[in-house]
Design a protein around this nucleic acid. Sequence first.
DNA 1: GTGGTTACTTAGTACTCCATTA
DNA 2: TAATGGAGTACTAAGTAACCAC
Length: 766
Amino acid sequence: MSGDQLHNDSQIEADFRANDSHKHKDKHKDREHRHKEHKKDKEKDREKSKHSNSEHKDSSEKKHKEKEKTKHKDGSSEKHKDKHKDRDKEKRKEEKSKSSGDVKIKKEKENGFSSPPRIKDEPDDDGYYASPKEDSKPLKRPREEDDDEYKPKKIKTEDIKKSKKRKQEEEEDNKAKKTKSKDKKVPEGDNKKKKQKKEEEQKWKWWEEERYPEGIKWKFLEHKGPVFAPPYEPLPENVKFYYDGKVMKLSPKAEEVATFFAKMLDHEYTTKDIFRKNFFKDWRKEMTSEEKSTITNLNKCDFSQMSQYFKAQSEARKQMSKEEKQKIKEENERLLKEYGFCIMDNHKERIANFKIEPPGLFRGRGNHPKMGMLKRRIMPEDIIINCSKDSKVPPPPPGHKWKEVRHDNKVTWLVSWTENIQGSIKYIMLNPSSRIKGEKDWQKYETARRLKKCVDKIRNQYREDWKSKEMKVRQRAVALYFIDKLALRAGNEKEEGETADTVGCCSLRVEHINLHPELDGQEYMVEFDFLGKDSIRYYNKVPVEKRVFKNLQLFMENKQPEDDLFDRLNTSILNKHLQDLMEGLTAKVFRTYNASITLQQQLKELTTPDENIPAKILSYNRANRAVAILCNHQRAPPKTFEKSMMNLQTKIDAKKDQLADARRELKSAKADAKVRRDEKSKKTVESKKKAVQRIEEQLMKLEVQATDREENKQIALGTSKLNYLDPRISVAWCKKWGIPVEKIYNKTQREKFAWAIDMADEDYEF
DNA sequence: GTGGTTACTTAGTACTCCATTA
DNA sequence: TAATGGAGTACTAAGTAACCAC
């Protein structure tokens, strides 16, 4: 399988280049299917071995057994069926690997196996050092996760004073708030005071305060509960639904579900078999028995009038008058004000998602087996409220009650409910700008920085483990190598048939890699091709070390394409091992670490001191892009991409013409001044010169913009910026080069990273 | 070791709003 | 003044990983 190398960015190491996926997703379908069949077989086998004496041995299983026997011609039909149970096979295999491995290792030694090249270029100083700033400001100490039983540390007296003062202020603030909440209605007049207060709130520097002991997330929590989806509004009489060419009036319930489908009619989803099948099955559940007996074929349903009605409605919404739009906006603001905030430990904090997800049709990503199923309406009776005992419990809507009210301060969520598609729990939590999220974020980067201190040791260790006699250890070491080198996700096991068939490192299957002893002039190439999170394709050709290559060959021996590559490994085994190497270390820390260290290196490499601000920002974006490529953060190219690119090019051409004109004018002005030699003409020359300069700058800006946009066509920068890059690296870079931080982070991002903006100075080192 | 549950982070896309341009 | 386009936001799916009982 070959994919076209898409990201042709000279700045980025070829190793890290992942290929485009969106166009190729379909290619995987076939394979997925095959895999599913296979897995089903496997599952059955598992069941069988579990209840070996059970009465479940039906004919299909027998058939399957026979099938399996023919599959594995070497007679080892039970091989690879089960990861953890088949000890005999394991032994046999290990013996085999031992003998062949020994030979191989010897051979390598004879070949003069030299220490492998470094996985990633890293700054020469291997040791970690805290930034001088942190040394001088113990208050902003990087938090170590290892201080398990955290006791608020005594910090500089000065700072204690500060914090005490702040606390006093807060207490006063809180008192005021409490009295306020008692007599609720506050005259609209005190806007100024309110504003001031708001600003104070925004300026709250939680990162300078003491933390709670491990496990405790808050001491006081009060909120207004969730906002429910608006009730269903039946369609007007003139909007008809037709079945088999005849008008049919649907019951409200059936009609509501029908409108969900009608609203999606233009989407490709509604043409997919699984989607239609799932939808129809769930829709029928909502029908009256009469409807059920009439409506038996989705193909005979005509939703077109409904669809047109909704299109007209959305058109009308766009055409609304200013006043109407303003009214809606005000209503939304009112809702936000009332339900969008909570009080957590004396501070008003913004809630991220205070609105309950409305009912609709489930749209999974990729080839999701449950697409089209009905996401049912969430009622107060489904809702668990979490708040503190001494808070005012939010009242349920009239005539309803909550499923439960609990007071659990070991968790951060305010509201939860169980969703009906996967049976998973959904939560209402706080905004990223909140203390509770910020602290966690900060902690995450501190863990990644701790990894920096010991990453060399860990790398040496897994290199050693490639030679281990134990298959499990070898697999673990190779997997870890991939996670480290390629920033792959851990790859938890997933329930079969419940989700799209996607994989991560530990769940890679034989069919996801191709080994090439030589490819494109390089030795020991591994070609990856699989669907990762969100069914985004990961395609990459990577040269690996010989020992890794040989190990992979070994892991793949006698396996079917649908078999697990790392059959002795899962994420929990891997993470347990990582925990032993460093406290708090998990597979995902490697992604954070490698993303952040890459940004820091790339910024160092790409920033040229004498460049102007737009050029520096281009460099920043390129560094950011290198990370996004490493992490395989892709996006569908914007629908208007080609057009907007063309428009930009037109602008550039026009600017070029304008520049040529200005230069001509400058030339003639110069000639004129030479002849006249008066003040006026000199001034004209000066002003023409300035004009040329101005236009040159404008042109340059446009060109930079064009480059940036082109390079960004299929790469999403946001995800890494928000989740993987230690914001202090960016802040330090801004401070070092005099770039306003607003150029890198928008308002929301600045709120999220307020802690970093406040604490990092220009010589911060990750 | 496994399977189930829970809590939380990470992810891409659809929509909205607002500034700029024709 | 309407159209356009891009930045920012809202939404919610899909991951990771810890914990617990057996």
